[in-house]
């Protein structure tokens, strides 16, 4: 993930059709915008606003060799490894969630060295996306210094594994002489982000926590939005202050109700806890066989997204929705 040369970044942006045009398509059509070997950035954080429908479509389209980055990874990280979609994840924390303990699938793949989990601090992830969004090759920061997290990504640990590895570097501030850490920009080839609503052009309005999604959308060279609902452009224009991701960054819009299931979508549904427990149980004893069985049942066998949701179950869906909409109760 060496920072893209500025001239290349500008060139790739120039080449995109950034006009105000309708770009609604299916999950399958949107999956064609991702190429094998791409750097894919995933919106949301942990079990919140994970664009699971798009991940589901990418697994079904048998994408390979993606480098995947996200602020914090939960069960989708397991899915990336177990499906063969990626063997290189860049994130700050990776496990299903603290109440389920350390991810056994993550352990199985990383401890046998079949996959990498490249660890940066959470703020470093944020500033790497922000540098990408700003069109600068790095940003300075004051954490990770003195730690072995820095050692692992600055050359004295496992990295740089290859020439494409962009290491963090300590630097002297040109004004004060202080020691700072320079973290390199991330400009993902494709970002996938799930939102509560957007219009057909890709103007997206987010409720609740935005995580790193606004910077990710600005940093990426292509953005696929999945959305609970496509609304009219008129509705967007009534509250332009609520628009967090602009149409000009967006290349595809896919309407997918419950597009984060079994994770959360703020104000609409909370995580599907029983399903998350079931997943943890399936991967507890033999993590790889358990993950394969899960993929078969929920990723490969369903005939469409509605079938996927049916397999998770109506009772789960209603429970998650009841808890999710409770955010607005006093």
């Amino acid at each position: 993930m060496t920072p893209l040369a500025y001239s290349d970044l500008r060139q790739r942006t120039r080449e995109r059709d950034r006009s105000l045009r309708e770009k609604v398509m299916s999950l399958e059509e949107a999956a064609k915008l991702v190429s094998d070997g791409d750097h894919l950035a995933v919106g949301g954080c942990t079990a919140s606003r994970t664009p699971f429908a798009m991940i589901w479509a990418l697994v079904r389209a048998s994408k390979r060799d993606l480098t995947v980055s996200r602020s914090i990874m939960s069960t989708e990280g397991d899915i990336f490894y177990a499906s063969g979609l990626s063997t290189h994840l860049i994130t700050s924390w990776f496990s299903q969630g603290i109440v389920w303990g350390v991810s056994k699938v993550m352990r199985a793949y990383t401890e046998s060295k079949r996959a990498r989990f490249e660890e940066w601090s959470h703020m470093a992830m944020g500033l790497r996306y922000r540098a990408g969004a700003m069109g600068v090759p790095f940003l300075p920061m004051r954490s990770m210094l003195g730690s072995d997290v820095l050692g692992m990504v600055s050359g004295d640990g496992e990295g740089p594994a290859d020439a494409s590895f962009a290491a963090a570097k300590t630097m002297e501030c040109p004004f004060t002489g202080e020691t700072l850490l320079a973290v390199p920009a991330l400009n993902p080839d494709v970002a996938i982000i799930h939102v509560q609503r957007c219009d057909a052009y890709g103007n997206a309005q987010l409720d609740g926590l935005t995580f790193m999604d606004i910077d990710i959308a600005m940093a990426a060279n292509r953005v696929i939005l999945t959305t609970e609902r496509v609304v009219s452009n008129e509705q967007i224009r009534r509250h332009p202050d609520q628009t967090k991701i602009g149409f000009f960054t967006v290349d595809a819009v896919v309407e997918v109700p419950f597009g984060c299931a079994p994770h959360e979508c703020y104000g609409l549904y909370e995580p599907f806890y029983s399903h998350m427990d079931m997943y943890a149980e399936m991967t507890a004893r033999d993590p790889e066989a358990g993950a394969r069985a899960y993929l078969e049942r929920f990723y490969h066998e369903p005939k469409d997204w509605a079938d996927y949701l049916s397999r998770i179950g109506m009772a789960e869906l209603l429970d998650a929705q009841r808890r999710g909409s409770g955010i607005y109760d006093d």
Binding site: T91, S92, W93, F94, E111, S121, M144, V149
Partner: peptide, 13 residues
């Protein structure tokens, strides 16, 4: 490693 743990998250920061 004997065990790969979840990592820093914001802990380092």
């Amino acid at each position: 490693p004997k065990i790969r743990l979840p990592g820093t998250g914001g802990g380092n920061d």
